[in-house]
Design a protein around this nucleic acid. Structure first.
Length: 474
RNA sequence: GGCCCGUUCGUCUAUCGGUUAGGACGCCAGGUUUUCAACCUGGAAAGACGAGUUCGAUUCUCGUACGGGCUACCA
C-alpha cells in the first residue's frame, strides 16, 4: 500500500471523552503524524437518541487539551445518511442485499427458541432469496447477503490473522425499516469515502471487522489496514468503569496532570518501544508503530502516571508551564492568579517544577508565593516557630538585612550565623521555612528568599519573630 | 449457549527456541539532606495450569482455568 497514511478517530458523542478513547485517538494521531499522514475526526452521531451536542463539545475540548489536532473539518456521520443509504440501494439493485420483511417480534421469538435449544442464534432470513413478486406491502429492512461458505480472514496488525467462519456471520441490517442507515454500514462508507487507510480502534470491534468486510467486498472497495487494540482496564483488571474513579480525559486535566505527561503515559500503556518509558512527543511520533502494540489489556496505574508527569513538568519551559497551570486553574474551578502572583510564580518556577508530579502539588509548594502577609502558619510550621526558633530568627534577620541578595551572599550569612551560634543549619531551616511560607513543605529557603526579594523576606521574618505560637497554635 | 481475543514481577512492559528472564513505576532497606520531597545505592518480586513438538521452551502446538469482547432495526 503506497500513498499517504490516513487515520481517524470516530467517537460516539454520548458523553465525555473516555480515557480509553483518548488513547485510541492518541494512537491514531501518533501513527499519522509520525508518517506525514492525516488524522481525521468523525463524530458517530447516527444514534439520535443518545447523541448530544454537549458530548461532541466535550470530546473536542478533551482532544484540544491533549493537543490531538485533527486535519480537516469534523465530520458528522449523521449528515452522511443519504450517502450511506445510497450505497445500500446500490447493493440492493445489484442483488447483493435484499429486503427483509421479518418483524422484530418474529426474530426475537426465533432467537429465544434457538437459545433454549442451544442452537446458533444467528438469524437467517427467509427473504434472502425470495421472489420480489412475493414481497408484501409492508415495512422492511435492507440486509446484506453475507457469504455462508468459507471463511473471512481479518489481517490484523495487532491481533494477527483472525479467521472467522462465514457461517458465523449474519445478514446484518444495512437500512432500518424507517430507511435510516445503521452504524455498521455508515463506518464502512465513511471510512472508504474519507480515504482512511488504517483503522486503529478498540478490539471490541474485532468481530465487527469481519462483518464490515462483507460490505467492502460487496462494493469492491479496498479493505483498510486493521489494528484492533486492547481496551484499558481498571486497577482490578476489570473493564474501566465509574467505580474506578476518573474516566473522562478532562477529569485528568482538572486533577492537574500535564497534557504532555498524559500523552506519554497513555502511549506507553499498551505500546512499547524497547525499554523507553519517558519520551517526548517528537520521539513518540518517530517511534510509534503498530507492531509495538501489545495484545493484552493494560491496567490504568495512577502512580506511574504521576511519575511520568513529574518528569515532564520538570523539563517544561517555564512560560509554557505557567500557561498550562492557568488553564488547569480554570478546569479545576480554582480562582485565577493575580498579575502580581503570576509574575512571582514565573520567577519562582525554576525551584517549583523539579519536584512536582501534578499542578496541585506544585501549587502547594508555591504557598510562599501565593499567600500574603500576615502568613498564618499551618500546624507543622507553627511547631517550628517556638520560643527558641523565634529567638534565632530575631537575631538572624538583621544580618540578612545587610546580606548581598544573591544565593552565595545569603548562604554565606546563614552559614556564618550557624557557626557563630554553634547551630546546625538544619536547626535554622525549619523556622526559616515556617517564617517564609507558613508551611513545612517548600523549596529551598534560599530560593524562597531570592524569589520573594529582600523587603518581603525581612518583613516575613519580622512577622514570624513576633508570632505568638502559644496562644495561636495554628 | 455460539464465535473471537488475551494470560511474563503488585502494575506497565522487554525477550521474537538457548538470558543469572532485563527495564520502569510502586514497595522495603541504607545513604545524603534543609523536616517532607527530591536524589544516590542496594533488595524482595514474574513466565496461569497440564500435555506435547524439540537436544533445548516464557517463546511453537493442543487442552484446561481465568479474564475480556462480539453475538441489535446501539455505536
Amino acid at each position: 500500500m503506497t500513498g499517504q497514511v490516513v487515520t481517524r478517530f470516530a467517537p460516539s458523542p454520548t458523553g465525555f471523552l473516555h480515557i480509553g478513547g483518548a488513547r485510541t485517538a492518541l494512537f491514531n494521531w501518533l501513527y499519522a503524524r509520525g508518517r506525514g499522514g492525516k488524522f481525521l475526526l468523525r463524530i458517530e452521531d447516527t444514534d439520535r437518541e443518545r447523541s448530544t451536542p454537549e458530548a461532541t463539545q466535550a470530546i473536542l475540548d478533551g482532544m484540544a487539551w491533549l493537543g490531538l489536532d485533527h486535519d480537516g473539518e469534523v465530520v458528522s456521520q449523521f449528515e452522511g445518511a443519504a450517502r450511506h443509504a445510497e450505497v445500500a440501494h446500490e447493493l440492493l439493485s445489484q442483488g447483493k442485499a435484499y429486503k427483509c420483511f421479518a418483524t422484530q417480534d418474529e426474530i426475537a421469538t426465533f432467537r429465544e427458541q434457538a437459545r433454549a435449544e442451544g442452537k446458533s442464534t444467528l438469524y437467517q432470513s427467509p427473504w434472502r432469496d425470495a421472489d420480489p413478486a412475493s414481497h408484501p406491502d409492508a415495512p422492511f429492512v435492507v440486509r446484506i447477503k453475507a457469504p455462508r461458505e468459507g471463511t473471512t480472514v481479518i489481517r490484523d496488525q495487532v491481533q494477527g490473522d483472525v479467521t472467522i467462519r462465514n457461517d458465523q456471520l449474519d445478514d446484518m441490517v444495512l437500512l432500518r425499516s424507517d430507511g435510516t442507515p445503521v452504524y455498521m454500514l455508515a463506518v464502512v462508507v465513511d471510512d472508504h469515502d474519507m480515504g482512511v487507510t488504517h483503522v486503529i480502534r478498540g478490539d471490541d470491534h474485532l468481530n465487527n471487522a469481519a462483518r464490515q468486510m462483507t460490505i467492502y467486498e460487496a462494493m469492491g472497495w479496498d479493505v483498510p489496514v486493521w489494528a484492533h487494540i486492547p481496551l484499558i482496564h481498571g486497577p482490578d483488571g476489570k473493564k474501566l468503569s465509574k467505580r474506578h474513579g476518573a474516566l473522562g480525559a478532562q477529569e485528568y486535566q482538572a486533577m492537574g496532570y500535564p497534557a504532555a505527561g498524559m500523552r506519554n503515559y497513555l502511549a506507553r500503556l499498551g505500546w512499547s518501544h524497547g525499554d523507553d518509558e519517558y519520551f517526548t512527543d517528537a520521539q513518540a511520533k518517530d517511534w510509534f508503530d503498530l507492531d509495538g502494540i501489545g495484545k493484552s489489556p493494560a491496567r490504568f496505574d495512577t502512580k506511574k502516571l504521576e511519575n511520568i508527569c513529574g518528569q515532564h513538568i520538570a523539563v517544561s519551559d517555564d512560560a509554557a508551564l505557567l500557561q498550562e497551570i492557568t488553564e488547569y486553574l480554570v478546569a479545576a474551578n480554582e480562582p485565577a492568579l493575580s498579575d502580581a502572583k503570576t509574575v512571582l510564580l514565573r520567577d519562582g518556577m525554576y525551584c517549583l517544577k523539579d519536584r512536582a508530579k501534578t499542578f496541585p502539588e506544585l501549587i502547594v509548594k508555591a504557598a510562599f508565593i501565593l499567600s500574603d502577609r500576615p502568613l498564618v502558619p499551618d500546624e507543622k510550621a507553627a511547631k517550628n516557630l517556638d520560643l527558641v526558633s523565634r529567638g534565632i530568627l530575631k537575631e538572624l534577620t538583621p544580618q540578612l538585612q545587610n546580606a548581598s541578595w544573591s544565593r552565595d551572599g545569603l548562604e554565606a550569612v546563614t552559614n556564618d550565623f550557624a557557626e557563630a551560634n554553634e547551630l546546625k543549619f538544619g536547626k535554622m531551616a525549619g523556622p526559616l521555612r515556617a517564617a517564609l511560607s507558613g508551611r513545612a513543605m517548600t523549596p529551598s529557603v534560599f530560593d524562597m528568599m531570592l524569589v520573594l526579594g529582600r523587603d518581603e523576606t525581612i518583613a516575613r521574618l519580622t512577622d514570624a519573630a513576633a508570632y505568638n505560637a502559644e496562644s495561636d497554635p495554628g
